[in-house]
């Protein structure tokens, strides 16, 4: 049984790893949206958002740190053995190149996710009211 479970873990696991950064974006997004909804509907009197701002900035810093970690790990995998500096992955039919491909995809998704996280925190910084 254990080797069969392995297929599920390594298979889906590796594919899910490249989506780790977008998942972090998604969690960050849900936390921002949920926290704002609950804060503005239930917690605040008079619609000020100072506490909310501080909390969400903290969440954002953590999210960006996690995404950066994903990106760094991905970068290491991608450029393993000095390959990939020009963006192309040489040789495509061995396990190593498959791994490097997954690394490259991880890096790219980390970049897009980081931009996404920064965009999503902008409204919290720029709109200081529950109106």
């Amino acid at each position: 049984m254990s080797d069969r479970k392995e297929e599920f873990r390594t298979g889906v696991g590796s594919l899910m790893k490249i989506t780790l950064a977008p998942w972090i974006w998604a969690f960050h997004f849900v936390i921002c949206y949920g926290a704002t909804a609950v804060w503005c509907a239930r917690l605040t009197e008079g619609g000020d958002t100072d506490t909310l701002q501080i909390a969400l900035i903290a969440v954002t810093v953590v999210a960006l740190a996690c995404i950066a970690a994903c990106g760094i790990v991905g970068k290491r995998v991608w450029t393993r053995g000095g390959f990939g500096e020009d963006g192309e992955i040489p040789g495509i039919d061995d396990e190593e190149s498959r791994t490097r491909f997954l690394g490259h995809a991880t890096v790219l998704l980390s970049i897009v996710s980081a931009i996404g996280v920064v965009f999503v925190i902008l409204p919290v910084l720029m709109i200081g009211t529950c109106r």
């Binding site: 921002c32 704002t36 902008l122 709109i127 009211t129």
Partner: peptide, 10 residues
């Protein structure tokens, strides 16, 4: 709330 809209705008 404007902030919520802002998330989706972003």
């Amino acid at each position: 709330p404007n902030i919520s809209l802002g998330f989706f705008s972003a």
